[in-house]
Design a binder for these strands. Structure first.
Lengths: 343, 343
DNA sequence: TTGTAAGCGTTATCAT
DNA sequence: ATGATAACGCTTACAA
């Protein structure tokens, strides 16, 4: 049953009475092989069930044609929406005939370099990027191909794709201000993310206060963890402490919690409380009512980030163009959760 | 900047004035190296930033230490809960120091065999397993290591881990029957899944009719796609056609839809309609009210499936024990969405 | 058009 | 305890 004997190129050559050189050329569609020979080789290949050993190939200094998504998950729980990044990245990778692998572990500097040096991967996509991120610094310093989902404070020439969180907050707040709201609350990202200086977390918080100040609104921000209970409490605290007429949420559970708390307290949406969510559509669609939102195209970001690294890898170092830096503009999708505040 | 010259074992050997054989032994912690030498080698290794080329290693016939999760996504949309499998599998893989890669593409038989033969992976985890599944058959036939999340109709000796859908349906229906319900509806999996003979989809449907018949209940099943709209319509049709007093849902959007339709029609839960969901807790928690459910530990399934393959790969063929076959029993988590039917 | 042979970076089997 | 050296399976000059 278990035929563990994988045929090698030598077997193919012997089978055909050819030299391995010719077989190799035929297999790789290189010039200098008679059409008839080429045909015979391809036939024999399927006949014998031969596929070239990638490792042997790589030994000649070829690319591994594989990239990694580095997605350090400190907590065991990964937020659902985050996973869309993975799907997008895997899809792009498959389409370009690369191998995709996923690292959920927290890697150290040595591990990271080893991935490249050992020839396991040609490039990586970084997630959970901090305003300062040692991974980005290390890789840039060593001239190794990588792209970020998110971006550091000073990305230099590094490739990235990021969602415009500042723009998102601006749109959200300005929309609320134009409706007449004067007291706005935000359920922010987990304090731990802010402490770790995670790019998105910090930008959301900063932009919120900044934009509210510019618009002359009273702003209160309460961070919450990503679970159901913590989110619920955060919304309650927000309502109790500053009685906002509108809430902006920065993660899915927060949006769910806002709806739930409102229902529990008999607060009607949007008449008595407006809600604007920032999040992935697929998740927000679970809510009832589905909130007005700044939709976060996670799968798309993942898809494009993977594309960026692969570009970097596929391109000859000589030809290498400036890596792309993309900031995805935010757009407000209006549903029925925002209205004028109660007078 | 871009030092693309990776040091090899030869560099380390020359640097120390040793032979590559000794260096190799030291690096791999093999016996027969003086402690002092070993130390010097390790020092030099970090000094020079050397890591062994995996490809060269594999050429000696070693394992690739990498497994693949094969998750064919026909539709572009992947259901959120499915992704937990990926997380679990990636986690297990990382813990056991394997490489994890994810294939979202639909692979053909040749591609599948090539993955093994080219030495890219040592084993795979199969998702979306059908009652008859050519992948399982092919791999079993060739004696290649694999495990299934789910199981075929006749898994033979193949490793798998599956959730006990039959048991889940049984628990759900019996619970409802004991509360006095006589007309029960189910929002089933997409018809396309049933047509494709996807294990879980078929088992859910079959078990539902079977169990309801045994309990003497009127049973109606309406399949729905995994999106918001289709799910909503399915619930509406269910209510309109057979006026059930209780609904069992088989995917997340269906559960969300049940709650939404009830709210829209002013049907109170659980007084006028009972709901039991089958799904991943993380997703069901978004709902309000969170329904009574047969919770599906997706991440756990993924984790254990990856463990199964790695066991298979790590174990010597000689020692290889019978592959594990695990059927995870269903448990009913009661919340507040089930009650006696209106008399 | 085809064949010969020299690597690629390791590990493993011998000697020493 | 250490060192030559032959694999491993393939690609690629260079010859024929």
């Amino acid at each position: 049953m278990a035929r563990d004997v994988r045929p090698t190129i030598v077997d193919v050559a012997e089978y055909l009475g050819l030299s391995i050189a010719t077989v190799s050329r035929a297999i790789n569609d290189r010039p200098g092989v008679a059409a008839s020979t080429r045909a015979r080789v391809h036939e024999a290949v399927t006949e014998l069930g031969f596929s070239p050993q990638i490792s042997a190939r790589r030994l000649q200094g070829r690319r591994a044609r594989s990239i990694s998504l580095l997605f350090p998950t400190e907590s065991a729980t990964v937020e659902a929406y985050d996973l869309d990044f993975v799907v997008g990245a895997a899809q792009a990778t498959g389409e370009r005939d690369f191998f995709f692998n996923l690292h959920l572990e927290q890697l150290g500097p040595e591990d990271l370099l080893t991935m490249y040096r050992s020839g396991l991967v040609d490039g990586v996509v970084l997630m959970q990027v901090g305003l300062r991120d040692w991974r980005a610094e290390l890789l840039a310093e060593h001239g190794l191909p990588f792209a970020m989902i998110g971006r550091t404070e000073d990305p230099g020439g590094a490739a990235y794709i990021d969602f415009d969180f500042d723009g998102a907050i601006t749109l959200a707040v300005e929309h609320l201000a134009s409706l007449g709201h004067r007291r706005v609350g935000m359920v922010g990202r987990p304090p731990r993310q802010v402490r770790a200086q995670l790019g998105s977390a910090v930008r959301l918080e900063t932009a919120f206060h900044h934009v509210c100040a510019s618009a002359g609104l009273a702003a209160t921000n309460v961070g919450s963890d990503l679970d159901r209970t913590s989110s619920y409490h955060a919304v309650e605290r927000l309502l109790d402490d500053s009685a906002p007429t509108a809430i902006v949420t920065t993660h899915a559970q927060a949006a769910a919690a806002a709806v739930r708390v409102a229902r529990a307290r008999g607060i009607s949406i949007p008449e008595e409380l407006s809600i604007v969510a920032i999040g992935v559509d697929r998740v927000l669609e679970f809510l009832d009512p589905a909130p007005s939102a700044l939709v976060f195209p996670a799968a798309d970001l993942g898809y494009r980030a993977a594309g960026l690294v692969i570009d970097l890898v596929d391109t000859d170092v000589a030809t290498s163009p400036t890596p792309q830096q993309l900031l995805l503009p935010a757009e407000l999708t209006l549903r029925n959760t925002t209205a004028n505040p109660p007078q």
